[in-house]
């Protein structure tokens, strides 16, 4: 089985790219692959805990937590998060925060990289 690294830079609200990235992560995990998901820029919005669910907006906390239990490693760019006021104390449990070199290190031994840029 292989390793897939996904980098997503698009916001949770206003774009469906994060929905796609999380769904793809789930599909890859189901097939037995290892998956790292890196969120940077506006995508760090994904890391905030206790987001209220509305039918009109994407809400990925529940599926994300289920995937993390199955082994998905999710990491937010710490600087991008802090710049937006997303602090460690309101970060979803299990969500890692590192600097950008973590993403490059994950890519280092990835078999495939899917980089989804921002808006």
């Amino acid at each position: 089985m292989g390793k897939l690294t996904i980098g997503c830079f698009a916001s949770l609200i206003g774009s469906m790219n994060l929905d796609f990235a999380v769904k793809l992560s789930g599909a890859a995990l189901e097939k037995g692959h290892k998956v790292d998901l890196w969120v940077s820029g506006n995508a760090t919005m994904l890391s905030i805990e206790k987001q209220r669910e509305f039918k009109d907006y994407s809400s990925l906390e529940k599926p994300l937590k289920e995937l993390m239990e199955k082994g998905l490693k999710v990491t937010a760019c710490e600087a991008c998060a802090e710049a937006r006021g997303y602090h460690k104390e309101n970060t979803m449990e299990g969500f890692q925060r590192f600097s950008m070199d973590w993403y490059l290190a994950s890519i280092f031994d990835a078999d495939r990289v899917l980089h989804i840029g921002g808006e």
């Binding site: 830079f9 940077s40 820029g41 506006n42 991008c80 600097s99 950008m100 070199d101 973590w102 993403y103 490059l104 290190a105 280092f108 840029g117 921002g118 808006e119």
Partner: peptide, 22 residues
Amino acid sequence: KSENPKLALTHAISSQSVEIYL
């Protein structure tokens, strides 16, 4: 117009410190 070009450069620059993970 967007954050993308700067994020490209900061991510590229971070290649200089990636060894701590390797």
